[in-house]
Amino acid sequence: MEKLTNKEEEIMRALWKAERAFVKDLLPFFTDPPLHYNTVSTIIRNLEEKGYVGHHSYGNTHEYFPLISKENYQNQFVINKLVGEYFDNSYKNMVSYFAKNDKVSAEELREILQMIEKGN
């Protein structure tokens, strides 16, 4: 699985929200700046070639759906990249950073630890 471009990620976020959509149904997700129908259609076809999107045909019209979950993509690219590039591949360093900068409270850390211990 290859990393997506920024525009491809935008289209995937819209498709993850919609779950199933025709190209015209995705256009309202892009208002600033608005994307043209042909642009979204081209990007969707690229995503399909990359294995991220599938479709059902209804005559000449296609209804698209994600083949990969948002969580799977986040785990493979977003989180790993963040931890790798900014925290020396250490989740401990990442958690420590958030704790030091008051982004995570001690109580939240205890809850996280309980979740880990329970296997959640």
Results as ranks from 00 to 15, higher is better:
residue 104 V to W: 01
residue 101 N to A: 02
residue 36 H to S: 13
residue 27 L to E: 06
residue 44 I to A: 10
residue 83 V to R: 04
residue 110 R to M: 07
residue 105 S to L: 02
residue 32 D to P: 00
residue 9 E to L: 15
residue 80 N to L: 14
residue 91 Y to A: 13
residue 72 N to M: 12
residue 71 E to P: 00
residue 56 H to Y: 14
residue 60 N to S: 13
residue 26 L to Q: 07
residue 92 K to N: 10
residue 102 D to H: 02
residue 106 A to P: 00
residue 67 L to K: 04
residue 19 E to P: 04
residue 79 I to N: 11
residue 49 E to I: 09
residue 15 L to H: 06
residue 96 S to N: 14
residue 7 K to Q: 08
residue 91 Y to N: 12
residue 4 L to C: 05
residue 30 F to D: 05
residue 111 E to T: 07
residue 42 T to H: 09
residue 55 H to T: 05
residue 20 R to T: 08
residue 59 G to N: 03
residue 118 K to D: 11
residue 108 E to Q: 09
residue 26 L to M: 10
residue 102 D to R: 01
residue 113 L to C: 12
residue 65 F to E: 00
residue 31 T to C: 07
residue 16 W to S: 06
residue 8 E to Y: 02
residue 10 E to F: 10
residue 16 W to V: 03
residue 17 K to L: 14
residue 41 S to T: 04
residue 82 L to G: 05
residue 69 S to V: 00
residue 99 A to G: 04
residue 117 E to N: 15
residue 106 A to V: 11
residue 64 Y to P: 00
residue 86 Y to H: 15
residue 27 L to N: 00
residue 11 I to S: 05
residue 44 I to K: 00
residue 21 A to R: 05
residue 75 N to H: 11
residue 111 E to A: 13
residue 63 E to R: 09
residue 51 G to W: 03
residue 33 P to R: 13
residue 92 K to Y: 14
residue 108 E to R: 01
residue 114 Q to M: 13
residue 39 T to E: 03
residue 19 E to N: 08
residue 7 K to F: 10
residue 49 E to T: 12
residue 60 N to Y: 11
residue 108 E to S: 07
residue 12 M to P: 04
residue 22 F to K: 15
residue 30 F to L: 06
residue 89 N to A: 08
residue 85 E to C: 04
residue 33 P to F: 08
residue 88 D to C: 12
residue 115 M to G: 09
residue 95 V to N: 01
residue 99 A to E: 10
residue 33 P to C: 09
residue 78 V to D: 04
residue 8 E to Q: 06
residue 87 F to T: 01
residue 75 N to P: 00
residue 67 L to D: 06
residue 55 H to W: 14
residue 92 K to R: 14
residue 85 E to L: 12
residue 108 E to H: 05
residue 115 M to N: 12
residue 107 E to R: 12
residue 64 Y to T: 02
residue 104 V to Y: 03
residue 78 V to N: 03
residue 4 L to R: 04
residue 32 D to L: 14
residue 72 N to R: 14
residue 66 P to M: 02
residue 65 F to P: 11
residue 115 M to Y: 14
residue 96 S to E: 15
residue 113 L to W: 13
residue 57 S to T: 10
residue 93 N to P: 01
residue 41 S to A: 11
residue 43 I to C: 06
residue 47 L to N: 03
